[in-house]
């Protein structure tokens, strides 16, 4: 199942903290240009897995291969945009100063910065707020600015941990439209979520529960497989099946 066109290969990955197993033999791959959703309740291991993919953590067993290179690798990290669960912004600085700072960290030249900053602000609908201090931003604005930062260096792979938490439905819709646009430009996107209606918008889904990948497939496949009407129902069926074992 791991092929050459795959951008991300998670190869029998396990992670233990002490005697607590957080990930148990996870194995799957993600193709170029797809939106891959990791779905599961909190504590299922979603964040641990995406942190490994972002190069922040290493597995206890197995390996993560991204763009044909074993993670963590500083070379590959240049090509990844990562947004964690916290907004990770500097409240004392303005939106523009935050963007300028991270753009420089990603190694964007001055000219590229001048061009990219208005672009990403427009993508997340924050144009016109660049002079405002981030501390005066609302929760949704902070989340969008955080997303804008992860888009600055035009990453080929975007890893987003719960990108739409605390964002109202209208904005959530516009953010998903952004994902679709990025996808059509060839960007691969990994999102974690525990919102079921969001899961349906992904090309493929991985269902995580207690550190195990209990199912993987397109939303339609998963629903058909369990003869459910919704992803939520499908998730419960898969989860129940695990319990019966």
């Amino acid at each position: 199942m791991v092929g050459d066109s795959d951008v991300v290969c998670v190869n029998h990955v396990s992670k233990r903290y002490g005697d607590q197993a957080v990930l148990k033999d996870i194995h799957f791959s993600i193709r170029k240009g797809e939106i891959f959703g990791l779905l599961g309740p909190s504590g299922a291991g979603k964040t641990t897995l995406v942190k490994q993919l972002a190069g922040l953590e290493v597995p206890t067993d197995g390996e993560n291969v991204i763009f044909q290179q074993r993670m963590p690798s500083l070379q590959i990290m240049k090509r990844i945009g990562y947004m964690g669960q916290s907004d990770a912004l500097y409240g004392e600085l303005s939106a523009k100063e935050n963007l300028e700072f991270f753009a420089a960290i990603y190694g964007l030249k001055r000219k590229e910065r001048l061009q990219r900053i208005p672009e990403v602000l427009k993508i997340v609908n924050l144009a016109g707020t660049e002079k405002k201090l981030v501390s005066s931003f609302s929760g949704g604005m902070k989340r969008r600015l955080s997303l804008a930062i992860s888009l600055l260096h035009e990453p080929e792979l975007l890893i987003l941990d719960e990108p739409t938490v605390g964002i109202d439905p209208v904005l959530r819709k516009s953010i998903w439209q952004t994902f679709d646009r990025l996808k059509s430009n060839g960007t691969t996107i990994i999102v974690t979520t525990h919102v079921m209606d969001e899961a349906e918008k992904c090309d493929r889904l991985g269902l995580l529960r207690d550190g195990k990948l209990i199912a993987i497939g397109t939303p339609t496949e998963l629903m058909a497989d369990t003869s459910s009407q919704s992803i939520e129902e499908a998730f419960l069926v898969y989860g129940g099946a695990v319990h019966e074992n």
Binding site: S86, A88, Y106
Partner: peptide, 14 residues
């Protein structure tokens, strides 16, 4: 605590 360190470490910054 605000997660900016994590973000910095997710970049190629040494």
């Amino acid at each position: 605590t605000t997660g900016t360190l994590e973000r910095l470490l997710s970049t190629p910054l040494k």
